[in-house]
Deep mutational scan, measured.
Amino acid sequence: MPGGGPEMDDYMETLKDEEDALWENVECNRHMLSRYINPAKLTPYLRQCKVIDEQDEDEVLNAPMLPSKINRAGRLLDILHTKGQRGYVVFLESLEFYYPELYKLVTGKEPTRRFSTIVVEEGHEGLTHFLMNEVIKLQQQMKAKDLQRCELLARLRQLEDEKKQMTLTRVELLTFQERYYKMKEERDSYNDELVKVKDDNYNLAMRYAQLSEEKNMAVMRSRDLQLEIDQLKHRLNKMEEECKLERNQSLKLKNDIENRPKKEQVLELERENEMLKTKNQELQSIIQAGKRSLPDSDKAILDILEHDRKEALEDRQELVNRIYNLQEEARQAEELRDKYLEEKEDLELKCSTLGKDCEMYKHRMNTVMLQLEEVERERDQAFHSRDEAQTQYSQCLIEKDKYRKQIRELEEKNDEMRIEMVRREACIVNLESKLRRLSKDSNNLDQSLPRNLPVTIISQDFGDASPRTNGQEADDSSTSEESPEDSKYFLPYHPPQRRMNLKGIQLQRAKS
Results as ranks from 00 to 15, higher is better:
4 G>N: 09
5 G>D: 15
6 P>N: 09
7 E>R: 13
7 E>M: 10
7 E>Q: 12
9 D>K: 10
9 D>W: 12
9 D>A: 13
10 D>R: 07
10 D>M: 13
11 Y>D: 04
13 E>M: 05
14 T>W: 14
14 T>I: 00
15 L>C: 10
15 L>K: 12
15 L>T: 13
16 K>C: 07
17 D>I: 11
17 D>A: 13
18 E>M: 07
18 E>F: 13
19 E>N: 11
20 D>Q: 11
20 D>G: 09
21 A>H: 03
22 L>P: 08
23 W>R: 05
24 E>S: 01
24 E>M: 00
25 N>D: 13
26 V>A: 03
26 V>K: 00
26 V>T: 00
26 V>D: 00
27 E>R: 01
27 E>T: 02
27 E>Y: 00
28 C>W: 05
28 C>K: 01
28 C>A: 09
29 N>K: 06
30 R>C: 00
30 R>T: 00
30 R>D: 01
31 H>R: 05
32 M>E: 13
32 M>Q: 08
32 M>K: 10
32 M>S: 07
33 L>A: 03
33 L>S: 01
33 L>W: 02
34 S>C: 13
34 S>L: 06
34 S>W: 02
35 R>D: 06
36 Y>N: 06
36 Y>T: 10
36 Y>W: 07
36 Y>K: 07
37 I>D: 04
37 I>F: 04
37 I>Y: 03
37 I>V: 08
38 N>F: 08
38 N>L: 01
39 P>D: 02
40 A>T: 06
40 A>K: 06
41 K>Q: 05
41 K>A: 03
42 L>Q: 08
42 L>M: 11
42 L>P: 06
43 T>Y: 00
43 T>S: 03
43 T>D: 06
43 T>A: 08
44 P>G: 11
45 Y>Q: 09
45 Y>S: 08
45 Y>A: 08
46 L>A: 06
47 R>Q: 06
48 Q>C: 10
49 C>Y: 15
49 C>Q: 15
49 C>G: 11
52 I>Y: 04
52 I>S: 08
52 I>E: 08
53 D>Q: 09
54 E>G: 09
54 E>D: 10
54 E>H: 10
56 D>Y: 11
56 D>K: 05
56 D>H: 07
57 E>G: 02
58 D>Y: 15
58 D>A: 12
58 D>I: 10
58 D>N: 13
58 D>T: 00
58 D>R: 02
60 V>T: 05
61 L>T: 03
61 L>P: 02
62 N>D: 06
62 N>M: 03
63 A>H: 15
64 P>E: 04
64 P>G: 04
66 L>Q: 04
66 L>K: 05
66 L>T: 02
67 P>V: 14
67 P>Y: 13
68 S>M: 09
69 K>R: 15
69 K>E: 02
69 K>W: 04
69 K>L: 05
70 I>P: 04
72 R>V: 02
73 A>D: 00
73 A>Y: 02
73 A>R: 03
73 A>C: 06
74 G>S: 03
75 R>W: 05
76 L>Y: 04
77 L>W: 03
78 D>E: 04
78 D>Y: 01
79 I>S: 04
79 I>Q: 12
79 I>P: 03
80 L>V: 06
80 L>I: 06
80 L>Y: 04
81 H>K: 06
81 H>N: 06
81 H>F: 05
82 T>Q: 02
83 K>P: 02
83 K>V: 06
83 K>G: 07
83 K>L: 02
84 G>T: 04
85 Q>E: 14
86 R>M: 13
86 R>I: 09
86 R>E: 15
86 R>W: 10
87 G>C: 09
87 G>E: 08
88 Y>K: 03
88 Y>A: 00
88 Y>F: 06
89 V>Y: 02
89 V>S: 09
89 V>L: 00
89 V>I: 11
90 V>R: 15
92 L>Q: 05
92 L>D: 15
93 E>G: 07
93 E>Q: 15
93 E>A: 08
94 S>I: 12
95 L>Y: 02
96 E>I: 14
96 E>Q: 08
97 F>Q: 01
97 F>S: 03
98 Y>C: 05
98 Y>Q: 06
100 P>K: 00
101 E>I: 00
101 E>Y: 00
102 L>P: 07
104 K>V: 00
104 K>T: 01
106 V>L: 03
107 T>N: 02
107 T>R: 00
109 K>P: 02
109 K>L: 06
110 E>D: 04
110 E>N: 13
110 E>G: 05
110 E>L: 14
111 P>D: 01
111 P>C: 04
111 P>Y: 04
112 T>K: 15
113 R>Q: 14
114 R>L: 01
114 R>H: 15
115 F>P: 15
115 F>W: 14
115 F>H: 15
116 S>N: 03
116 S>I: 10
116 S>P: 15
116 S>G: 14
118 I>T: 14
118 I>P: 15
118 I>N: 13
119 V>S: 12
119 V>E: 15
120 V>M: 02
120 V>G: 05
121 E>C: 13
121 E>M: 04
122 E>F: 05
123 G>C: 15
123 G>S: 15
124 H>Q: 12
125 E>M: 12
126 G>W: 15
126 G>N: 15
126 G>P: 13
127 L>F: 13
128 T>L: 15
128 T>C: 06
128 T>S: 05
128 T>N: 04
129 H>F: 11
129 H>D: 11
130 F>H: 15
130 F>A: 15
131 L>S: 08
131 L>T: 00
132 M>P: 03
132 M>F: 15
133 N>R: 00
134 E>A: 14
135 V>H: 14
135 V>T: 07
136 I>N: 12
136 I>L: 08
138 L>T: 11
139 Q>W: 14
139 Q>I: 15
139 Q>M: 13
140 Q>E: 13
140 Q>A: 13
141 Q>A: 11
141 Q>G: 06
141 Q>N: 12
142 M>R: 09
143 K>N: 12
143 K>Q: 12
144 A>P: 09
144 A>T: 11
145 K>C: 04
145 K>A: 06
145 K>W: 12
146 D>M: 11
146 D>L: 13
146 D>Y: 05
